[in-house]
Write a protein that binds this DNA or RNA. Sequence first.
DNA 1: CTGAAAGCGCTAACAC
DNA 2: GTGTTAGCGCTTTCAG
Lengths: 339, 339
Amino acid sequence: MVTIADVARHAGVATSTVSYVLSGKRTISPDTRERVQRSVRALGYRPNASARALASQRSNVVALVIPLRTDMHVPVLMQFAAAIVTAARRFDHDVLLLTADEGPAGLERVAQSSLVDALVVMDVELQDERVPVLRDLPMPSVLIGHPEEAGGLTCVDLDFVAAGALCVDHLADLGHRSVALLGTPSTVYERQTAFAERTLTGFAEAAARRGVVGVETPCEHTFDAILETVGQLLHDHPDLTGLVVQNEPIIGPLLDVLRRLGRRVPEDMSLVAICADDVAERHVPQLSSVTIPAEQMGTLAVESLIAKLAGSTVPELTLLPPTLTARGSSGPYSDRTTA
Amino acid sequence: MVTIADVARHAGVATSTVSYVLSGKRTISPDTRERVQRSVRALGYRPNASARALASQRSNVVALVIPLRTDMHVPVLMQFAAAIVTAARRFDHDVLLLTADEGPAGLERVAQSSLVDALVVMDVELQDERVPVLRDLPMPSVLIGHPEEAGGLTCVDLDFVAAGALCVDHLADLGHRSVALLGTPSTVYERQTAFAERTLTGFAEAAARRGVVGVETPCEHTFDAILETVGQLLHDHPDLTGLVVQNEPIIGPLLDVLRRLGRRVPEDMSLVAICADDVAERHVPQLSSVTIPAEQMGTLAVESLIAKLAGSTVPELTLLPPTLTARGSSGPYSDRTTA
DNA sequence: CTGAAAGCGCTAACAC
DNA sequence: GTGTTAGCGCTTTCAG
């Protein structure tokens, strides 16, 4: 292994000079810099990460805590992860992957051992037990999602309240008077996952405001569950003509189920999904949707973290405004009995 | 921050004694051990990861290189990642997440800086440019998947050749005489992804051996592409009654397409998928399938790595035998014209 | 603009 | 069974 001392010797300078050439933390004469850089290349020198971390008190690693639950939509998680890794690399940081099932203890472990110098936490619940833990850690963290009490922590999230409302508004604008939110599996609500709860809130508020009937129901991932849930919904609300779907994996089967039940999309039933754009575009018909800007959120989270590491203060809460793209799955209300 | 010296002072022993109590690398009198452990708890001591890594030349971190391609089936990747993180934690290791798009240089970076002390690489191609790089690194690595020339590297994989053959055998045993492999998107073949190519090989060999007609075609993920691909297939091979599908995300739409084309499953068309069990069970009808044992493979990969770190030699190639579970999507051949 | 040297916190000889 | 201490490779004062 080639060390900084080897480089220094090869370049005929002190180790500190090599260090400063590499970090740019003090001015070096062009001549010396050249010589050192040449030596670095000649010897194939790579600074030792542990030594550097020990001396500088910075590991240049951020932790990413990701849920492993089967009730979450995995591709979206992956988009977040990809965006976070990519953004972190841009700032010369690496990403340590933690699974949520290590719980708060896992956060303490990696933080207190200085394995990482910042944390990104996903899959936030309204009353998240990790919030107090994170607040007491001696390093910055960013939540993707926002709990009821963030207590000084930094949160980045899509404004899911507004997203829920936006979907209702879209359907109401099209003339629909009775709409339903087909949500995540019930386990997601049971643990009060923030995004799901907030969407619910926005959906209900907007329905009330617009004077439309708005019902909400969770929905599991199996075909039979979808059939059952939608069947029940249509039975209880025969005049239902609008559906907001916040449950990506059920979309395909849902379209089947509607077909099976003799409801055409969008003629008899308008659909708006809250999902990634590529998912919305993959279906037939393509789905009107509020996009989940995973890449933007992940990038933003990392940028906030880096800013905090640099000592800047960042806003406590950044809520991205939702945008709705109308595609083929939603259309104007028409009375089926007239058609 | 509380250091090992603080603990030593508090317990009235030398720092080395604290170190040895923690590592168990030499015998300590029960009395001293007790005292030290009490001090550790009292002070809330956590060994500093960088200091430990620097002194011991072991970071206790393994790199996981994961593809970010959209043509891969993401949930399976996640299952691998989850299994690898979980297994690594059992051996007191953490996982650094690298995306494949950093390329071979990314591997060199984390390895040569001693950020990690072993690597797990996924999404292997037959001629993988990372193989020579990995071989030259001063630390062990394990590939999940196997290239043509592993050149001394350790590989863990499902026996995809056998998997492809197993599907054909299953269909041939049911009396089918003309079968097709509906494969991954063409980009996956173009870069000669190992699992896809090997499945192709096994499929073709078995078809020849069993004397059945076996055709192969890639398939993209969009609904239109599936419709087009299957339509072409049925046009070219009107007597086709068996389909092997190695392309998880298309399975849902494929079932639609077949319905649309008037082919009932399994009465008119038998289906066998190569996919995770939960995917197979989610569809209607449930799919006969060869499972991808992601958890087992991930665990095995980590165990091999840990063994190599401990100096053991492990087999160069571990191929897991495929198992086929017959479910509702495959049935005996019957002549449609007779039906 | 550059060098010398004191740590960073821990492990692992070496000594007893 | 336990203590002493020399590093691990780097960063960053402190000096000049």
